[in-house]
């Protein structure tokens, strides 16, 4: 591990150098395996948050206090430590520039990670694919990659980011303040006739509800790709 970046009070990015890493696709994940001194092993999947870039990759890990793996990765791990990885994995929940758009990304909490890989790839490839990100967080402090998202939007390459905060809002907040619902998706998404490619990632209830809303709004189920966190136990 090369470097650590604290993204929010509970979320940390790990920058890794992996010798022999075959370049990944935006949206793919890796399995991280930890082995205790007594031989006990625990393995978890993490989405890759960085765009493809040689042998470097970034994982962003939310610390779940009752988890087996995330408290170590997001708490105790230090630069120079080694990790056992398997990957890149997955060929379904992926986006490449050639797939085009428009692109609608819907994230809940740390569900932003694989979508961030897509946004970073889009930026690195100087893609002008019209892209909207609807991102639900508990509070402004919990928004992962907040500054980077602001910078990407300011570049004026056709990216719009719409935040919604579900718990506390800062004073003077003029943005959305509720969970993602059908009306919100209807207002944010392109009309179904424009056939947007849609990626939804977050906790299972958010993903199910957003996917159902999008189908009800008339979007083709085959264009809606989902990644549920589920009760993976962190």
């Amino acid at each position: 591990m090369l470097d650590l970046v604290d993204e929010t009070p509970r979320v940390r990015s790990l920058v890794l150098a992996v010798p022999g890493w075959p370049e990944h696709l935006a949206g793919q994940h890796v399995d991280v395996r930890l082995t205790a001194e007594d031989g006990y092993q625990a393995e978890r999947s993490y989405s890759i948050a960085s765009a493809p870039a040689g042998e470097r990759l970034t994982l962003t890990v939310e610390r779940l206090d009752d988890g087996e793996v995330s408290p170590y990765l997001a708490g105790e791990l230090r630069a120079g430590d080694e990790l056992e990885l398997r990957g890149p994995i997955g060929g379904y929940f992926v986006w490449e520039g050639a797939l085009g758009g428009p692109l609608l990304l819907v994230a809940g909490g740390s569900g932003i990670c694989p979508l961030m890989a897509m946004l970073r790839l889009r930026q690195a490839a100087a893609s002008a694919v019209p892209t909207r990100l609807l991102y639900s967080s508990r509070s402004l402090e919990d928004v992962i990659y907040r500054d980077e998202l602001d910078r990407l939007v300011a570049m004026g390459s056709g990216l719009e980011v719409i935040h919604t905060l579900t718990r506390s809002i800062p004073e003077g907040w003029s943005g959305l303040h509720r969970r993602i619902d059908t009306a919100m998706l209807g207002a944010v998404a392109w009309p179904p006739a424009e056939r947007p490619l849609i990626f939804v990632c977050g906790p299972t209830p958010l993903v199910e509800s957003a996917a159902e809303s999008l189908v009800n709004l008339g979007h083709e189920p085959a264009h809606i790709k989902t990644e549920r966190f589920g009760p993976t136990g962190g």
Binding site: H29, G87, I89, G91, E227, R228, G230, P231, T232
Partner: peptide, 13 residues
């Protein structure tokens, strides 16, 4: 059951 559900892509590994 809903809380336990994942996407098939989680089985990729």
């Amino acid at each position: 059951e809903q809380e336990l559900r994942l996407d098939g892509n989680a089985a990729a590994g």
